[in-house]
Nucleic acid binder design. Structure first.
Length: 104
DNA sequence: GCAATGACTGGTA
DNA sequence: TTACCAGCCATTG
């Protein structure tokens, strides 16, 4: 079975700590961890996102992962995430939905 | 070791 | 608002 790196584990831990109805951008997570960059966070989700609420991690623009907009939209509607656009291009209202974890 | 790639970001047009 | 460009950082061939 596959083991994951500490960095990946940290990313998944932060993503898993995001409450329903809120989201974080790739860059925010990378900045919060203080390591790597948004591309590395996205890479972790593409690899291990299957076991974490990846739909709560979106671009700084408020758009979900490309190719998964519909899948993410289903979760947003179910969790009551503040959407700025309920139709494609799907956009989340970052102003309200952006989750800031404790510790800043 | 270098070049290309990727679930990214910010700025400018 | 959308489109294009340059920058950033780790992985992969």
């Amino acid at each position: 079975m596959s083991e994951i790196d500490d960095y990946s584990a940290q990313v998944l831990d932060v993503v898993d700590s995001i409450p329903a109805g809120q989201v974080m951008s790739y860059g925010d997570i990378a900045e919060y961890l203080g390591a790597g960059g948004p591309r590395q966070v996205g890479r972790v989700l593409s690899r291990y996102g299957g076991g974490a609420p990846w739909w709560r991690v979106i671009h700084a623009d408020g758009t979900p992962a490309e190719g998964h907009e519909t899948r993410a939209l289903e979760h947003y509607l179910a969790e009551g995430t503040p959407l700025r656009s309920a139709a494609p291009p799907v956009r989340v209202n970052m102003r309200q939905a952006q989750y800031i974890p404790p510790g800043e």
